[in-house]
């Protein structure tokens, strides 16, 4: 038996099993979540959005030690129920509904989006009259806004879905995401991009889905740093800070120009840690 099919089959089965939804009760908000009422009566929410194949930030989102909501003074954390198992259309329509719920009137929102959640909020803002929402900023960790080469693949199905065991995995490649909508249209909201660069050998080595470009195992730096093309990025290069014109408008680095030496799973919580939550 050649080694690659063994590797792929093993990982695909293991990851698919790990992707099983957990008990929904475990996703309930922590009772200690801080809630602050602003002087105008509105609230400030931190909306958490998960990644590919998730049902919310805490259900189905992979993380080294599970995903939990961040907690900050004066901000109520919310775990958005967004189904990222079937299609972008479902996910985006659910995102729009949540923004209408939490981000209008005297309420205001911050967003913490992980992986493909970055694509979901980007498309939602680009294809709607986003002015109606009070979104202060979007924090995007390991963002798949620019599409993942793992999805955009043409090899055997187990490889195509490595770690992405749901139908939506077919819709999130670089062509679909980059040509699908205008990412420069954020509705005037700044996107803070935090990229990981600790790759996985089975996606960044053999086979190499990323052509040697920096990646976190699931998404390339060109996506997670908000770059406006699939630029080839060498490890440790400060691409996240190279001139605005290499980025989608309104997209800029969060905290670091080189990204973190963390893989895609670890990036789930890395941004929350960086934000002090």
């Amino acid at each position: 038996m050649r080694p690659l099919p063994l590797v792929v089959a093993s990982l695909a089965l293991t990851l698919a099993a790990c992707a099983d939804p957990v008990d929904e009760q475990s996703s309930a908000l922590e009772p200690g979540d801080a809630v602050a009422v602003k002087s105008d009566g509105g609230q400030t929410f931190m909306l958490h959005v998960g990644g590919i194949c998730s049902q919310s930030f805490t259900i189905g989102t992979k993380g080294e030690n599970g995903a939990r909501l961040g907690q900050w003074s004066g901000v109520e954390s919310v775990d958005l129920e967004i189904d990222q198992r079937q299609s972008m259309s479902i996910a985006v329509s659910q995102m729009i509904g949540h923004l209408d719920t939490y981000c209008t009137g005297s309420d205001e929102c911050l967003l913490y989006v992980y992986s493909n959640g970055g694509a979901v909020i980007s498309q939602a803002l680009a294809l709607t009259e986003a002015d109606r929402w009070n979104i202060l900023w979007v924090f995007s960790t390991a963002s798949n806004e620019g599409g993942s080469e793992i999805s955009d693949n043409f090899l055997a199905a187990p490889v195509t879905r490595l770690g992405f065991a749901c139908d939506l995995a077919d819709e999130i490649g670089p062509s679909d995401h980059r040509a699908g909508w205008n990412h420069n249209d954020t509705g005037g909201t700044l996107f803070y991009m935090l990229a990981g660069r600790d790759e996985w050998w089975y996606t960044g080595g053999f086979p190499d889905f990323f052509g040697g470009s920096a990646n976190d195992g699931a998404v390339a730096f060109h996506s997670s740093a908000g770059l406006n093309d699939t630029f080839h990025v060498s490890d440790d290069a400060p691409w996240a800070c190279y001139e605005q014109s290499y980025h989608y408008a309104g997209h800029q680095a969060a905290f670091t120009c080189e990204g973190l030496d963390v893989d895609h799973n670890g990036m789930t919580m890395a941004g929350i840690h960086e934000l002090g939550g």
């Binding site: 602050a36 996240a240 190279y242 001139e243 290499y246 800029q252 905290f255």
Partner: peptide, 23 residues
């Protein structure tokens, strides 16, 4: 005004490094 208020109330904050020439 909203960003200033968030900063004043000690909410989550993020910093962005200055742009650099390149690549």
């Amino acid at each position: 005004a909203r960003l200033k208020r968030l900063e004043a109330m000690g909410g989550p904050t993020v910093t962005t490094p200055a742009w650099r020439e390149g690549p």
